[in-house]
Design a protein around this nucleic acid. Structure first.
Length: 493
RNA sequence: GGCGCUAUCGUCUAAGGGUUAGGACGGAGCCCUCUCAAGGCUCAAAUACGGGUUCGAAUCCCGUUAGCGCUACCA
């Protein structure tokens, strides 16, 4: 990628109207990677111009989410910076100045139409076979009259005067040239009647004032590009490089990844919000790797990439134009992979809060022993409580005694096996190295296959058939617990 | 409806005029094995359709179809 001439300054500019979801995280990530790749600045700006949809918790969710994913920002809330404030409702005076400028230049006009009239006008337009939208009634209002009505306190919005004929040609760094017939474009509202700008005005003004060099945002914004291009033009500004990132579609491929969390047919939550992924124990390494692969690729082979590699390799040229369908299986695969890459110490530490939250009182020392046995068997950190509950619980949850009966065996065999094992476990050195030959010897002495020997013991001790390797498990659990559980199992037979 | 974007295995993608169309997830099979995993090997699986351009098209152009996005005093 050719290095941009001026300093790269990009921003992620969400509106705090809801939870921070993966679509937003992907947009933030591409901005972050782009900035870090060029040693530029990654700026966070809060676009809170929609008062009615504003959610006070949203900024917290956002900041926490970015921190969890390890995307540090150079300027913005909590970071400061010389282009602040970075919250739009703290910049209202600025937008009013630019509104006035457009008004004076005749590039915008006051609209006194009521919502009711707007609706009626839109319907009338449609009835006449045109497009729905505003009929531009106030566009040619006398300026003195307009100013007088405004001064008298009459409620109004300010609309941008779009050209009526011809076309607006814009350029997108990913898609190239895009042409829009002006006959299709609206005189969009720039300033609402409450004196707060809409996205379009605030965004363009801020990007200019904050010296944003590249705008990387979601594909849903391409339809606003002509307006934004005309706004830059009206102000006499050169627009930043605009790049629209492909949308993330829900797993069904039908529509944008929803902003609501559904459940799979089996009842599992299908997370959409960043904090849900965090709560379920997705590692930031996996999230970032997966997100980066949604709409971007490095080459024909490489998929596993660390943050540093992503930063080094990221380029706008390799961003795809087509929308991408979200795939939970692939994310799970990556998460499992990154879990397996962790040292057992690191895994134990990460596991501890999850297992404790599930209600088990566990110490780090014990977790250090259990973690390696769980490592290959979990795809998310939160899976550990279920997969290894028998490690952490005092009492095993109830299980079906039929599970104790070995393949091609019967209850009598299970009893013989367990009683023999109990005897052995009472005296043998309680290490995996000693346990294995001892129990194998028991199998031989009893004339049963090793599987028939191990399975009843495994179920007695773990309460289920699918569990980590037996001897390591026994060793971790300790003699006392193992003997107790075998006694309980024998009693069930 | 209008406007816009997009179109390679089920999914994420590579190949950007010449390849047996490559990789990954998922699926199937085999191996390993005390179960479950993990790991290794193998297999099935794609250029939406129709026209051009060209010696040659997944690749360039046009059309169709389909999907998605936008069509607010929301972002």
């Amino acid at each position: 990628m050719t290095t941009p001439a001026k300093q790269v300054r990009v921003r992620y500019a969400p509106s705090p109207t809801g939870d921070f979801h993966v679509g937003g995280a992907r947009t933030a990530l591409f901005n972050y990677l782009f900035a870090r790749h060029f040693n530029g600045k990654f700026i966070l700006r809060i676009e809170d111009t929609d008062q009615s949809r504003y959610k006070p918790e949203a900024v917290g969710w956002l900041l926490n989410g970015l921190q969890y994913l390890g995307m540090d920002w150079d300027e913005g809330p909590e970071a400061g910076g010389e282009f602040g404030p970075y919250v739009q409702t703290e910049r209202l005076e600025i937008y009013r100045r630019y509104r006035d400028q457009l008004l004076e230049q005749g590039r915008a006009y006051r609209c006194f139409c009521t919502p009711e009239r707007l609706e009626a006008a839109s319907k009338e337009q449609q009835r006449r076979g045109g497009n729905p939208g505003y009929d531009r009634l106030c566009r040619d209002l006398d300026t003195a009259e307009s100013a007088r009505r405004a001064a008298a306190g009459e409620r109004h919005t300010v609309r941008f005067k779009m050209p009526i004929d011809g076309e607006t040609v814009v350029y997108d760094a990913i898609r190239g040239e895009i042409r829009f017939p002006n006959s299709n474009l609206q005189d969009t509202v720039l300033m609402k009647s409450d004196g707060i700008p809409t996205y379009h005005l605030a965004n363009v003004v801020d990007d200019r004032l904050m010296e944003i060099s590249h705008v990387l945002r979601g594909d849903e914004w391409v339809s606003s590009l002509p307006l934004h291009a005309r706004l830059y033009e009206a102000f006499g500004w050169t627009p930043p490089v605009m790049a629209h990132l492909p949308l993330i579609l829900n797993p069904a491929g039908k529509g944008k990844m929803s902003k609501r969390e559904d459940r799979a047919p089996d009842g599992r939550v299908l997370p959409v919000f960043v904090r849900t992924f965090e709560e379920l124990g997705y590692l930031p390494e996996a999230m970032i790797n997966y997100l980066a692969l949604l709409g971007w690729s490095f080459d024909d082979k490489t998929e596993i990439m660390s943050r540093e590699e992503l930063i080094e390799r990221f380029s706008l040229e390799r961003v795809n134009a087509a929308p991408a369908v979200w795939n939970y299986d692939k994310l799970d695969h990556l998460n499992g992979y990154y879990i397996r890459q962790l040292s057992s110490d690191a895994l134990a530490e990460r596991l501890l809060p999850f297992v404790r939250r599930a209600g088990f009182a566990v110490e780090l020392e014990y977790m250090l022993k259990a973690a390696p046995l769980l490592q290959e068997r979990i795809t998310r950190l939160s899976d550990a409580a279920k997969a290894g509950g028998f490690f952490f619980a005092d009492e095993l949850p109830p299980y079906d005694s039929a599970e104790l009966i070995p393949q091609k065996g019967d209850a009598a065999m299970a009893r013989r096996v367990l009683e023999r094992a109990r005897q052995t476990l009472t005296s043998v050195d309680f290490s995996r190295e000693a346990l294995e030959p001892a129990l194998r010897g028991d199998a031989e002495a009893l004339g049963v296959k090793t599987g028939q020997m191990f399975q009843p013991v495994r179920v007695a001790v773990c309460g289920k058939k699918a569990a980590p390797p037996l001897f390591e498990t026994l060793e971790t659990l300790g003699r006392e617990t193992c003997l107790k559980r075998i006694d309980q199992a024998v009693a069930k037979l």
